[in-house]
């Protein structure tokens, strides 16, 4: 139908008011969102500073190892706690901004939201870890496996302490405490490297493996406890 005809019809006939429009709309089957759609939608709500920090760490490692040909292991390893800060702070974000109650009562509850965001951040950190690993390894004397373990130990320590702290302390204080833990582990890692000779020596590697195993178990345990706690946060009697 051409536009002139449409215009003429509009002029000649007045369209009747729609009857039971809402009932009709309600009767239409609404398209359902898939788990993948939900995950992608949640990725958009992860704060931009987290992505910026990851990009910054990668650029520093790339410049240091690739262009300046420096041993970047200690530096990358010291930056790992800052990467771990992202999933740790994300776990307490809903409560910090008073969104927990709304999120818990939604179809995809707080637990799903948290699992989705921690999953996304975990994957992003894993990807970044594999990108940083060759940069940290290339100018040092350690093997690639040793480099990986040296990098993951401070990360796991921050996750463990941060998640534990976020279950005990809530709100803004929690964010500050987690920030302090990450910074403390990062500085501690760098200081120990500077002060202890043979910090990354091969004969100490079994201790690093043991520490990594213990920290990983602890971090997983804290992760489970955190998810469990999100089923019912502790409410004040108002």
């Amino acid at each position: 139908m051409n536009s002139n005809m449409k215009r003429l019809l509009k002029e000649c006939f007045e369209a009747p008011e729609p009857e039971k429009k809402q009932e009709f709309i309600a009767s239409l089957p609404s398209p359902d969102v898939s788990i993948m759609d939900f995950l992608l939608s949640q990725a958009a709500y992860i704060p931009k500073w987290i992505w910026s920090l990851s990009a910054l760490i990668f650029v520093v490692a790339l410049v240091g190892a690739g262009y300046l040909k420096k041993d970047m292991l200690w530096c990358v390893s010291a930056c790992m706690p800052l990467l771990a800060l992202a999933p740790v702070t994300e776990s307490g974000r809903s409560q910090r901004w008073d969104m927990a109650e709304l999120e818990m009562s939604s179809r995809f509850s707080l637990k799903s939201v948290l699992l989705a965001r921690l999953g996304i951040l975990g994957l992003a950190d894993l990807l970044l870890f594999f990108l940083l690993l060759p940069l940290a390894w290339m100018n040092g004397g350690s093997s690639i496996l040793e480099t990986g373990v040296y990098m993951l130990c401070p990360y796991m320590l921050t996750v463990l302490l941060g998640l534990w702290a976020s279950r005990i302390v809530h709100g803004r204080e929690c964010a500050y405490l987690c920030g302090a833990i990450a910074l403390g582990v990062a500085l501690g890692n760098a200081l120990l490297y500077q002060t202890i000779q043979g910090f990354y020596a091969r004969h100490n590697f079994p201790y690093w493996v043991l520490a990594f195993a213990l920290l990983s178990v602890g971090a997983v345990k804290q992760c489970i406890e955190t998810i469990k706690q999100k089923e019912e946060p502790v409410w004040n009697l108002r």
């Binding site: 969102v33 974000r93 969104m99 109650e101 709304l102 108002r238």
Partner: peptide, 28 residues
């Protein structure tokens, strides 16, 4: 559900808040 006290993420506009809640409610 409208809770007695509810917050919002600091970077949210009214539209962002609605889109976010819609994503949690499973709306396309």
């Amino acid at each position: 559900y409208l809770p007695q006290d509810f917050g919002y993420y600091p970077e949210f506009s009214a539209q962002d808040f609605m889109y976010y809640m819609a994503s949690l409610k499973g709306l396309t």
